[in-house]
Structure formats: structure tokens, C-alpha cells
Design a protein around this nucleic acid. Structure first.
Length: 480
RNA sequence: GGCGCUAUCGUCUAACGGUUAGGACGGAGCCCUCUCAAGGCUUAAAUACGGGUUCGAUUCCCGUUAGCGCUACCA
């Protein structure tokens, strides 16, 4: 049975790169009828936050992709130290009594790679035991077998055969001096215990994988298969981070701005992966069927956002496509809570009548607020009376049109076709073009020149509202 | 610095070593049209650079350059 896991650490909100890794794992599991596991990698106690944990669950729940098993690393610490002890007792790890380095002070100025601390690596068994017994703190380091093994290798599902000389791998830590496992140890111990068969994760772990292979082998466990996916970057090429790029990299930002979960998933899949048949819009089922590791790219991909436009245009387009192809009733149901959250008390029935008029005019659910404002608010937002004047017309013409409309609408059958017939007829009577007739009416009832088609709009607005707004428009015209 | 990964239109990407280098988003233009959308059509736009190998390189090899990753008792 194939088993995959998504293992976020709760040290920041769920960002879209992590979400994509989750999605790829999920797709892979579902494609192969395997098991999807969510594991919270929370061994860095100092950096864990409750807010981060919530952000992860909020984001994942919104995506609507379920997982089958759930674990928390902090509840499995015994397992980790067990593996560390086993490795230590085989002589494949050693105690390092060197005091912990403060922060990343060493990092930048480092000339040449640090591999190990000779004194500690070669410390005699007796002295090591004595100092440990005396309570001196130590980190447990993996003894990279540079003498006996020349290279470590593994086959990556995306990047192919990978080889690295043991001479280039440093003696990494397994246990910190406070006894907590490091990421490498905890991750491998859990992957082994949970019988993970395939690890699909970010490419930033590609070179760490050699260490992991070493750990699995030292513990006597067969390593799982690995597949690394390319990273997501900002337009400037740097990796996505809240500090640099703000909330645009957080999954919840997409949710709150009115993305449909599936459109978002669809978009993320298309960044760094391709079904190779030019298809762009895929249903969940189609994604499951089409998803293979072979379709994953090897180079980083940029999420094309700017300060002016926080979302990748393709993501927005995909969302609009999904909105357009939804059943009206479904879209209406999605729109209702957005509208109500903005403070408008709209009935489901009315929302259902508004929806078809704006369906192909909104790209994000949020857009309903600006696209349908004149349906929602009792009073129109202030607008300039000059807007009422039609092309090649003057205030007098606008007034004539509106006076006429008052009479026509009072009598017309208030349906799309009835209104169209009445209004076109009126234009003919006045001897003006239909456009000149419709424009002042549109502005009068909508408060602006760009709006959904007129007849359907009038119909949904209803006779009383239309007449009232036209009278108000006439008043405004007098002021010119 | 060391080690590793990567390199096709602005962006996401396609192309058994043989294509006029294809598609999509975005841009521009035209059509449709009661405005705005949607839709239809057209168009500009790419193989980082230099060497090989080959009858023939986007594709294989080497180098250069650039970007990214790892190089923590972070994950």
C-alpha cells in the first residue's frame, strides 16, 4: 500500500508552496489508491505557534482535500530518541560536547565547508561516557562514513539519479543538547515508523536527502522513494516569504479574496507540473487521473504577482473560468455569505436572480460587492449627473429620455422581453438610437455607465426601485 | 567559499535528435454588441552564451554566465 505524507512545521502560516506540496502528495495518493497522512513536524518548540497551526488547518480544510491519518511529532518523541540510541549503539553516531553555536553567526563568513569536529568525532568511548555521566550537555552527531563509503545515492522521482560524495556531507546533528530530535532524525524516524513509501517534498530538501538515506541505512530501514518538486518563487526570483512578499503568499489570503478552492488547486497544479496535453482547466477527478511525477518540472516557477495586482493573472483567469462554468444555484450559494458578510441583507431568492447577471462579469467572489452593489444597497452611491448624458447628447436629451422612460416603465410588462420591446419602441418614438435611450436609464438605475445588461437588470431591480431612481436622476439633471 | 539543482515568449508551459518551436495567461488590434463582460478572429513575443557530437541540435556532452537550494544543536 502506497503511503505519502505532508509534514508542515507550524512556524508560519500555510503558504502556497506548501499547499502545492500537499496537493501533489494528495493527488499522488489518490491516483494510486494510497494513504494520505498529515504529520505536524513540531520539534522546534521555540518557533512553534498556535496561530501557525490554525493557519495550516484553516488552509487545508478550505482546500477540501481530506487526509486519512494525522500525527504530531511532538507526541512521538520516544520513537525519535529510540532511533537515535540505536544508531549511537551501533557506533554510527557520537556525542559532541562543543557548546551550541549562537544563531547563524558562523554561516555567512564560512570559508570552506565544515565537516566535523575532529576532537569530538574521535573522542574515546570512556571519556565520552564519563563526560555524559557528569551531566555535560552534548549534541548527538551522525558519524558520516567517509572512510568506508565513498558515495551516497538515490533515485529521485523528478530529478533522476542523485549522487553525492560522503566527503562532502558534514556530521549533522541527530539530537540537540536539550535532547530534542533535529528535523532530520525526527523526520526519518517517523517516516520509517509510519511506513511512508514515497516522500514528495520541496526541492530545498534535495541535498538533505543524502543525510536521510544515511539515517535510514544506519537504522536498518529501507529508504522510501523520494521525489522533489521545484520551488515557487516571487517575480524577483527569491523564494516566497511573508516578510518579503506579504500576505499574498498565504493560502488564507486567496480564500478571503474569493478564490474557489478548486480553482486555486487547479492553478497551483499548473505551476511546476503539466498534464502535457495543453489542458488547463481540469476537474478534481481529471487531476487525479492525469497526475504523474513525470509531469513535474525541474526548475523553479514564479508566481506572477505585483503590488498592484496581488494575484497571478492566470490564477484569477482560472477562477473566473470556474465561476463562469458553475451552476447558477451553486454560485449564488457561494456569493450569499460574501454579500452578507459585507453587511447586505439579501434573500437567497434575490441572490439567485442577481447571480446570472454578474456571473460572467466577476473574477473573484469578492467582486460581487462591486459588480452588484446597486442591487444590494437601497440607495445608489453618489454619482455625477453628467454621467446621465448619452453620447452625442445633452442634458435636455437625457431629461427627455428619462421622462419618457418613466412613462414607459410604469406601463411596461416587467420582464426582459417586455422591457426590451417597450424601451426600443420608445427610442423609435423619440427618434434616437437605442444606445442613447439605454444609457441614461442605465446610469439612473445603476449609478454608473458599466453594468450588466439593462433589461435583466431592470427586471431584477423591480418597477418601484427603477422608477424611484429615475426620478432621482431627473432631480440631479435639473441641477446642471 | 564548498557541494548540488536549474536554464524555451513578460509569466505558466509543450515539443521519440528532424515542427513554419505549439498552447495558455497577460498585451495589442478587429468582429459581435444597449455599456461592461463573455465569445469569435488576428497579431507581437522565446530555445541564456560559447564550444563540441551528429547529415541534422530546444533536445546529448563540456565550459561560461545567471538564478536557486543546502552548507544550523531551523524545518
Amino acid at each position: 500500500m502506497l503511503r505519502v505524507r505532508f509534514a508542515p512545521s507550524p512556524t508560519g502560516f500555510l503558504h502556497i508552496g506548501s499547499a502545492r506540496t500537499f496537493i501533489f502528495n494528495w493527488l499522488y495518493a489518490r491516483h494510486h489508491g494510497g494513504v494520505m497522512i498529515l504529520r505536524i513536524d513540531d520539534t522546534d518548540v521555540g518557533r512553534n505557534t498556535e496561530a501557525s497551526l490554525n493557519s495550516i488547518f484553516d488552509g487545508l480544510r478550505w482546500l477540501g482535500l481530506n487526509w486519512d491519518e494525522e500525527y504530531k511529532q511532538s507526541e512521538r518523541l520516544g520513537l525519535h530518541s529510540e532511533m537515535a540510541q540505536a544508531i549511537f549503539h551501533k557506533g554510527l553516531a557520537y556525542r559532541d560536547f562543543t557548546p551550541a553555536q549562537g544563531g547563524d553567526s558562523e554561516k555567512s563568513g564560512a570559508q570552506g565547508a565544515w565537516l566535523f569536529n575532529a576532537d569530538m568525532r574521535n573522542l574515546g568511548q570512556e571519556e565520552s561516557d564519563r563526560r555524559a555521566a557528569a551531566g555535560e550537555p552534548f549534541a548527538l552527531r551522525f558519524r558520516v562514513p567517509r572512510e568506508s563509503v565513498s558515495h551516497v545515492r538515490f533515485a529521485d522521482g523528478v530529478y533522476g539519479e542523485q549522487v553525492k560524495a560522503t566527503a562532502d556531507i558534514e556530521d549533522f546533528a541527530l539530537l540537540r543538547s536539550d535532547g530534542m530530535p533535529t528535523y532530520h532524525l525526527a523526520s526519518c524516524a517517523d517516516d520509517a515508523d509510519l511506513r511512508i513509501t514515497d516522500i514528495i517534498r520541496g526541492q530545498d530538501h534535495l541535498t538533505n536527502t543524502f543525510k536521510h538515506v544515511l539515517i535510514f541505512e544506519a537504522a536498518g530501514c529501507p529508504p522510501p522513494r523520494f521525489a522533489h518538486v521545484p520551488l515557487l518563487t516571487a517575480p524577483d526570483g527569491t523564494k516566497l516569504s511573508k516578510r518579503r512578499h506579504g500576505p499574498v503568499v498565504s493560502v488564507t489570503t486567496y480564500r478571503d479574496s474569493g478564490f474557489l478552492p478548486h480553482a486555486f488547486i487547479n492553478f497551483l497544479c499548473l505551476v511546476g507540473w503539466s498534464p502535457k496535453n495543453d489542458r488547463e482547466q481540469l476537474t478534481r477527478q481529471e487531476l487525479i487521473e492525469a497526475f504523474t511525477l513525470e509531469g513535474i518540472h525541474r526548475s523553479n516557477a514564479v508566481v506572477n504577482f505585483t503590488e498592484a495586482d496581488p494575484f497571478d493573472p492566470k490564477a484569477v483567469w482560472l477562477n473566473a473560468e470556474h465561476i463562469r462554468t458553475m451552476a447558477v444555484a451553486d454560485l449564488s450559494a457561494q456569493l450569499l455569505p460574501v454579500v452578507r458578510a459585507a453587511g447586505f441583507d439579501v434573500s437567497p431568492e434575490k441572490m439567485l436572480r442577481i447571480t446570472p447577471l454578474i456571473q460572467e462579469r466577476i473574477r473573484l467572489l469578492r467582486d460581487v460587492l462591486t459588480a452588484a452593489d446597486f442591487f444590494l444597497a437601497a440607495d445608489l452611491a453618489p454619482y455625477d449627473a453628467s454621467e446621465l448624458i448619452p453620447k452625442k447628447g445633452d442634458p435636455a436629451l437625457a431629461a427627455r429620455v428619462l421622462e419618457c422612460a418613466l412613462g414607459v416603465l410604469a406601463a411596461a410588462q416587467f420582464t426582459h422581453d417586455g422591457l426590451e420591446a417597450a424601451l426600443r419602441g420608445a427610442a423609435g418614438t423619440l427618434g434616437i438610437k437605442a444606445g442613447q435611450m439605454f444609457e441614461p436609464i442605465r446610469v439612473a438605475v445603476c449609478g454608473r455607465k458599466t453594468a450588466p445588461p439593462l433589461f435583466g437588470t431592470l427586471e431584477v431591480l423591480g418597477r418601484e426601485t427603477c422608477l424611484g431612481r429615475i426620478r432621482q436622476a431627473l432631480e440631479k439633471l435639473k441641477a446642471i
